[in-house]
Amino acid sequence: MQWDLTAFARHLEERGKSRLTIKAYLRDVAELERQSRGRAAHDITRQDVAHGLAARHAQGLSARSLARMLSAWRMFCDWLVERGERTSNPCLGLHAPKQGRRLPGALPVDATSAILDALPTGTALELRDKAMFELLYASGLRLTELTALDLADVDLEQELVTVRHGKGDKMRIVPLGRAAATAIAAWLAVRRSRDAAMFTTLSGGRLGARQVEKRLARCGERLGADRHLHPHMLRHSFASHLLQSSGDLRAVQELLGHSNLSTTQIYTSLDFQHLALVYDAAHPRAKKNGD
């Protein structure tokens, strides 16, 4: 049998696949046909499929795209088996490369400070926003943790904040830092609400997560930031900058509220230049003769 993609498309339609999915699958199977170099579909071997995946991976195709491609090839070969054109599916047992966990980009230290220093403070809302954004970066809070904060959770005298997260009301206490404490004090001086929430709306109710996201994105646009700003970026920047400066993964784990150290290892990323400097300064064999 040759590569009857028209019949395969009808099969996909009968399976209820969407037009876009069918188009993508046909494109992927056409790629397998090109790699077959003129051989019939029933002659494709497991080695051919593995080689095809490896070749596309070497060309830079993402893990997500490779997984979709293998899925299309597997479905096509299943269809051939159903039609009696093959006795087995050569794709069975093969797996695409695992998809790496995508990390949010951390801001450089200088850029983070420049943005926070440039935040306007002319109105009550601007004072509130500055307090929120300073706190996100100073303490590495999750967005849900920020919006869940109550007045009683913040100790400005000790510069500490009590953070609650997730089911079971897990709690940790983390430092605020002088800049965040100053910004929060300025916000509290103009805050007008009887609600227990630390950060409130103009009407006095607790501020929602989506509102925080919009306010930060808008601030970034007004200040000419070179990327879209979002709360998780400030948390990631907090973790990355702290880890770069201290190298203490356990301490960063505690501050972030991660249950497993492996999560912190994935979440935080050391700057390579920083690693190189540490290596050059610390490793005996890295030092030049005469140093």
Rank of each mutant, 00 (worst) to 15 (best):
V49Q: 12
A54D: 13
V81T: 09
P97T: 12
L80M: 08
G100E: 15
M69V: 05
G93W: 02
Q47M: 09
A67Y: 00
C91V: 14
P90H: 06
R101H: 11
H57P: 00
A54E: 14
L70K: 09
E82H: 13
L66T: 08
G84S: 10
P90T: 13
G84T: 12
P104L: 12
G93A: 08
R64M: 04
E82K: 14
S88I: 04
C77R: 01
L92K: 06
Q47L: 12
A96T: 10
L94E: 06
D78C: 05
G93K: 04
S71G: 15
K98T: 12
A50N: 05
R56H: 13
L70C: 07
D48Q: 00
D48S: 02
L70R: 13
R74D: 06
P104R: 03
M69E: 00
L94G: 03
V49P: 05
G84P: 05
T87C: 03
K98V: 12
L61G: 04
Q59H: 14
A50L: 14
L92Q: 11
V81H: 08
R68N: 01
M75N: 11
A54G: 15
G100F: 03
V81S: 04
L80I: 01
F76G: 07
A54W: 02
A54Q: 13
A50S: 14
E82R: 15
Q99P: 03
E85D: 14
W73A: 04
V81L: 04
C91Y: 03
R74Y: 00
G100R: 15
Q59G: 14
S71Y: 02
L94S: 08
A54H: 11
P104W: 00
D78W: 07
C91T: 15
A58K: 12
R86D: 00
L94P: 01
T87G: 10
S62F: 09
C91R: 01
V49K: 11
R74V: 01
H95V: 10
A55K: 13
R56L: 14
K98R: 15
A50E: 13
A67D: 05
N89L: 04
R86F: 00
A96D: 12
M75Y: 00
R64P: 00
A96H: 11
A58I: 03
A67P: 00
H95C: 02
L92Y: 04
A54L: 13
W73C: 03
L80C: 04
R101N: 10
A72I: 10
A63W: 01
A72P: 01
N89Y: 02
R86V: 01
E82L: 14
S65Y: 05
R102A: 10
P90E: 07
N89E: 05
D48F: 01
P97N: 09
E85G: 01
R101C: 06
R83V: 00
L66S: 02
A50F: 02
G100S: 13
E82D: 15
R64G: 07
G84W: 10
Q99C: 04
T87F: 03
A63C: 05
H95S: 14
T87W: 03
S88Y: 08
G93R: 07
R83Y: 02
E82F: 06
S62Y: 06
D48L: 03
G60L: 06
C91N: 02
S88E: 10
S65W: 02
Q47D: 13
V49D: 08
S88C: 06
G93V: 08
L61R: 10
A67R: 09
H51Y: 03
W79R: 01
V81R: 07
R83N: 09
C91S: 11
A58M: 08
